[in-house]
Nucleic acid binder design. Structure first.
Lengths: 160, 160
DNA sequence: ACTTATCCTACTGATAAAGTAGGATAAAGG
DNA sequence: CCTTTATCCTACTTTATCAGTAGGATAAGT
């Protein structure tokens, strides 16, 4: 339960943009797709923009779009932006001084590091092109039949 | 950063007991080994006792000891006790109804489930006999030279 | 009895999450 | 210009959880 709602919302927003394709979506249109309070989503989109993950245009016809091809945006990048270091515990942060004074605590550390590395590995190999392709079928069809599908990486069938 | 200090303290306490062996340790003695406020540790030990992970005896000479052999106590058990379900996000909890209304959110779920499963797998295969054996060398020697070492599972050299 | 420990419950301060609110700025269309 | 539609930006509020303190009740040794 350590993924905050903000992070959840951010990942959904980026995924919605990846699914939508090259044209931009306004906050209002995003709210229609993912279920998020609009003024809160505005803040989130601003943060995504500052981080260079999305790009924005103002005024009527304005909105947000991805700033890079979706296959170059990993889940890890978005999650790290909102969650900070992905270690389960402070002493397992990547740039941590080698040793802590207490041996009992330190022995546990290598396990926390295992958890950290496994988490990062999963999030790093998951990109938004793959996610969009996986959702593309059902979601796009149900909501806006006939959207021109973007070039998608092979959908890995996953686990069902 | 999702492991709370309480969980951290609890795992350290259980490890200290595993290292110490068959005899019991008082809260005061535990405080000497792991760095934790004593009245807070009391609460934590109570919770570990209610869960059947440790056993207690009262009065002088009293204290806590493990309620099972350390190789039967996994890190997963202790962590789950204090952290609840180990899913990174609510919708990835193990006994979750199959589908959520929103497809965009749901597509991300399988990735959250991957993170959950990887985390659980690591914590389940890590038991306190292994952890104690890994710490046993340096720590036991430094603090109470000559403690009778308990039967330990093979120390897996890990990563250094 | 007296000491040493666990047990039990209530209370408190600090911090972060999760939003609300309200306006400033910029671009498009008439 | 002037209005509309959008992003942009900052401050505020509310709620919950974390991380402890505090203080006594109970039980077991000596």
């Amino acid at each position: 339960m350590w993924i905050t709602r903000k992070t959840d919302y951010a990942t959904r927003a980026v995924l919605a943009l990846a699914i939508h394709g090259a044209e931009s979506l306004s906050v209002h249109e995003l709210v229609d797709r993912i279920q998020v309070p609009s003024s809160y989503l505005e803040q989130i989109m601003s943060q995504l923009r500052s981080a260079g993950i999305v790009r924005s245009e103002r005024g009527p016809k304005g909105g947000y779009r991805l700033n890079h091809p979706p296959e170059e945006i990993t889940l890890e990048r978005v999650v790290r932006l909102f969650q900070g270091p992905l270690a389960p515990i402070e002493c397992a942060t990547r740039n941590m001084p080698a040793s802590c004074p207490m041996e009992v605590g330190c022995t546990l550390r290598s396990t926390w590091e295992e958890v950290r590395d496994a988490t990062i590995a999963i999030l790093e190999r998951t990109d938004f092109a793959t996610l969009a392709a996986r959702a593309g079928g059902s979601w796009t069809a149900a909501t806006k039949t006939g959207t021109r599908r973007r070039r998608t990486t092979a959908a890995p069938a996953a686990k069902g």
